[in-house]
Design a protein around this nucleic acid. Structure first.
Lengths: 209, 209
DNA sequence: AATATTAGCTAATTATGTTAGCTTTTAGGC
DNA sequence: GCCTAAAAGCTAACATAATTAGCTAATATT
């Protein structure tokens, strides 16, 4: 039964570097593997977090304060929100909880009193130090398969992919919601269901980090 | 002020391949970049999904039915749940919606009538085909930086990392909740508050995919 | 001084899941 | 042939992680 014409869907990628024998099969595989890996990566983070009594995102917020603190004079709520691609109010909620737990301190910024200065407390650092030995064992296993060269290359590739993904998102937003203008469009039949703004104004609300 | 001893936290990884000048700085960077990429990768998927009126996870479920259908005789709810690391009931909810939308059909499996046979409908395939051209442009940009060799290597690395992450998760679970056994312990009184199950039984509930 | 902007907060809501427990079907032991 | 156990999927109730809207206070602009 079934007319199973086996390949009813056109290619989802076209760059020759990403095709094998004209098929996007391994590209689809990569896309899927990325989700698979990243899902496990999150699970590992959740495990580290649980070790010191936190949820995954709470741990991320905590450690990010540390990272930013090392690089910049002071870490504000919005700075952190941007850094993690999360909303301001969400960072407020999480940092409030971390403050209640005594892991983070919030004091008004002396230079701009609208701002809040986020810092990891001594107790916060203590918890992170306590976690490290276990974290180290787990990380060693998780990233065990990487050689020095692969590690460097992966680092490099990820940096480039973040960049290109950003561009892809912009292109996607543009394609979804073209500025209406640029009216040469000589496509006759297509004119029917033209711009309109379709079924779903693809809000593209970039969510977590 | 502040005793800022700058590096209060011990290393989070110890394999020499992942250290540079004895520092885990670039390793931390990689871990963070992976989250950054994940967030954008998900956003791209959400954009593709929105294009055909679906949420990101709905699109993933739809396309996964297609992938599994191509590989196996029949796709059941639980098969899909396992594949995507999601719960059965959640797959039920999503596939019901996709069925209402006419993109997926659910019929009882002839061989085992407890099972439901999931299939993408003609309309479902039509939507995917409709999406492909746009998807192709966006994917070309997102994965544009990859050379043929990098593409192959990344594919390979991801497969290995999924595997090692799985092992890391098991180690993590073990470290968090060691089997109590190793029964040299002849403590009689201890029997009272024995296992207890700690502060947080690091449930490690691996979530999405 | 009046106005606009920025930072952060609270409240309400949404999206994305999960666990518990039920029904139906299949499989296994007797 | 039964009776029990296990498996598949469903519904319902709930949990978590996040958003948007709109408020207040501090700062910047005119």
């Amino acid at each position: 039964m079934a007319d199973t014409s086996k390949a009813p869907v056109p290619l989802t990628v076209s760059r020759p570097e990403l095709l094998e024998d004209g098929s996007d099969r391994s590209f689809r595989q990569l896309v899927h593997a990325l989700f698979g890996f990243l899902s496990r990566h999150e699970a590992v983070r959740a495990g580290h977090a649980a070790r010191i009594g936190l949820a995954g995102i709470e741990y991320s917020v905590l450690i990010s304060i540390g990272h930013l603190e090392a690089e910049e004079r002071s870490v504000s709520v919005n700075r952190l929100a941007t850094h993690l691609h999360l909303s301001g109010p969400f960072i407020t909620t999480v940092t409030n909880k971390l403050e209640r737990l005594g892991l983070v301190s919030k004091e008004p910024d002396a230079e701009d009193r609208r701002r809040v200065k986020l810092r990891i407390t001594a107790e916060g650092w203590r918890r992170l130090s306590e976690l490290a030995p276990v974290q180290r064992q787990v990380n060693d296993v998780q990233f065990g398969p990487l050689s020095t060269d692969e590690f460097r290359l992966l680092n490099d590739i990820m940096a480039r992919l973040i960049d290109s993904s950003e561009r892809a998102l912009k292109l996607q937003a543009f394609l979804a919601d073209p500025p209406e203008a640029a009216p040469p469009a000589p496509l006759p039949a297509a004119a029917a269901g033209k711009a309109k703004d379709k079924d779903k104004p693809p809000r593209l609300s970039r969510r977590p980090a």
